[in-house]
Structures are given as C-alpha cells and as structure tokens.
Design a protein around this nucleic acid. Structure first.
Lengths: 184, 184
DNA sequence: GTCTATAAGGCGATAGAC
DNA sequence: GTCTATCGCCTTATAGAC
C-alpha cells in the first residue's frame, strides 16, 4: 500500500539519529538546534554523526524526509469511509484540534524548519514536494466526493489549493501567535 | 489620521539602522543576519549598534515595529472606495500579485522572522499584535460591506479570521515552496 | 563505528580611547 | 556617538587513535 514514491529504508542507526534529532528539536527549537545537542540526545559524540552524514544540512534534510514518511504512513490508512469523513480525518491529522503537547511542539518546529526553505533551495524543494502531496490528496478526496454526489460540483483543484492555503495559515498562526482560531 | 496605537518616533539614526537592517535581511536572510553584517551595511562598527540597542534581540524587535508601522501607513490611506474595492486593495497590499523582487524578498524575510516567534515570546507578542490588527481591519471592511448591502450577511469575525488564515497560508507557501497559487 | 582532541572561524557583547 | 581591539563562547567540521 502507498508505495507512492520516496518511501525509503531507514536503518536502525538512522532511526536512532532521527529520533534524537526529533527530541533535540522539541527541546531546543530549530534556531538552537546544533550537532552537539543532537549528539548529546543520542548519547554519542558529534564525530559519530559525521560518520553517518556529510554535514548538518544533510542530516536535517534526512530528518525532513523521515518526518514526511511518517506523515504519509499516518495519512494513507484508508478504511471504507465516506469522502466527507475522510476529508475531516485528514484535516484533523494536519490540524489536531486538541493540542497534545509534543505534537503541537513538533508542528511548531516544522514551521521553524520550513522557514529554512526561504533561503535554502534544497529545503524548498523538499517542502514543495510535501505540499504537492497534501494538495493532491485533498484533491483526490474532493473529486471522489463529487463523483459520489456527496460534494457540490466544484473545481476540485482550486478548492484543494484554497483549503491547503487556509490549513497552512492556521498551522503557521498557531505556531507563531497567541491568537486562537476556530475551524470548520 | 491613523494615530491608532503604537506609532512612535523614529530618529534619523534609528531610521538609518532600520534601513541597514532591511538591506542586510534582503541580502543574507534571517538565519545569516548578524550584528556584523548590519553594521557593515550601515558602514559603521558593530560597537556603535550597541550604543543604540542593548542586544540583537532588542534591535530586531525594533525592526519589527518599524516594518509594522510601514505596513500600517500603507494600509490606512482611505479614499472613498466601496467596501469591495477596499477589500481588494487591502488583499493586494498583503499579497501583491506581481512580485516586485525586493518586495517579495521582504515578505520572505518576514516569514523567516516570524518563525522566531515560535520560541521567542517577545516576537510572538509582536506578531500577535500585527495579526490582530490585520484581522480587525478585515472585519471592519466586511461589516461595512454588510451594512451597505454590498456583502451577504455573514459572521464578519469568522469570515475575517478565515480570510486571514488563507492569506497567511499563501504568504507562507509563496516564501517556502516553488509552487504557484491563484487567488480570488 | 565510535572516540578524544582540536582546528578554524563567526558570533554577541564589552572595555576604553577619542 | 563612534572607533579599535578583544573576550569568551559556541559552532561546524576534521584528524587520527582504537
């Protein structure tokens, strides 16, 4: 199922490093994330990280792939739901209503990570891919809903694009302001 | 006009520093923005910056105020437009269709700056205020449009909040992906 | 594969002269 | 108000032993 595209193998030591990166990110945030801190979460030396990865950027790009893979595997567990249920569940995955502490911290960290995409072309490429997949998935659900007569006959591409922009905005605002939002 | 709240005095040397910060931000992006680089855009020494500001954070918070003030003065030049014209112009201000190079770079830099709000409470407070003002302005336009019978009778708060989320999302996506968006 | 030790450099910030 | 010089810290990354 879902052998969509970039699913890749994660060796045991890679996973350990990715999880250490995850913990360090939650603990210190992106701006304070350093190789030293990742290494100390891993209980190993900095040098050993450079055995596995060429550079910090390299490690972080891997981490981005890792998180993307986890998102994908959370998303594509199709049951036999109706399109509107599927849509609702998908949005709930992206924007959990109840903010489990670690989960909301991870979303926040992803917003920080995303800001790297402004100046770093490799990051931007990765985020472009992530976003494309999300929009495509939205569009698929909407088209299905239209086909089954559950949704009005709208331009599914435009609606998916619009929904995604709104979702991104809420994610960003949750992470960077003290304001509160409703959904729908 | 618009003596709304935080408009404050900007001395000549403050303005010079803010403009140097602006240039440094466009040139290097937030992650690579340092006191040294701002100083060299200013053609002065680092130490002189510390005469004017206590710390880097202090300087950047001032810069954020500076940019906010500029946004406000761009926004509140009311003509006698209809609400829908006003709305359109306001959105065009936030999300210029044609991406003047420096302008779009500044938007991008603001996205980077915003990501600081994830971990820094002072930044978050500042962005919360900015966003509140934008939403309030949107709401005012919508309410006026409803009063004049130009818009449908909707919940102006909710609609303003929704529109703002969408706008934020587009800003963020423009800055961090290579994807393209339409508007409406 | 992991370690210790260290190189090389940028950073924020300060001291003290002018 | 601006300068030069410098402190102390932390960073990414590497060398070389085990």
């Amino acid at each position: 199922m879902t052998a969509d595209s970039s699913e890749r193998e994660w060796s045991k030591s890679e996973v350990r490093i990715m999880e250490a990166t995850h913990r360090a990110l939650l603990r210190y945030g992106y701006a304070q994330l350093s190789i030293s801190r990742i290494a100390s979460e891993l209980d190993q030396s900095k040098a050993s990280l450079y055995y596995h990865y060429d550079s910090k950027e390299d490690l972080l790009l891997s981490f981005l792939e890792y998180v993307t893979d986890q998102l994908e595997s959370n998303i594509y567990t199709d049951n036999n739901e109706s399109p509107s249920q599927e849509l609702e569940r998908f949005i709930e995955t992206l924007l959990p209503l109840q903010l489990d502490d670690d989960e909301s911290q991870l979303r926040a960290a992803m917003v920080e990570l995303r800001s790297q995409a402004v100046m770093d072309e490799k990051f931007r490429k990765q985020f472009t891919e992530i976003d494309d997949r999300i929009v495509n998935h939205l569009e698929r659900i909407i088209s299905k809903g239209i086909g089954e007569g559950e949704f009005r006959n709208v331009d599914s591409t435009r609606v998916a694009e619009h929904m995604f922009a709104t979702i991104s905005g809420v994610m960003c605002n949750r992470a960077t302001t003290n304001r509160e939002n409703a959904l729908a």
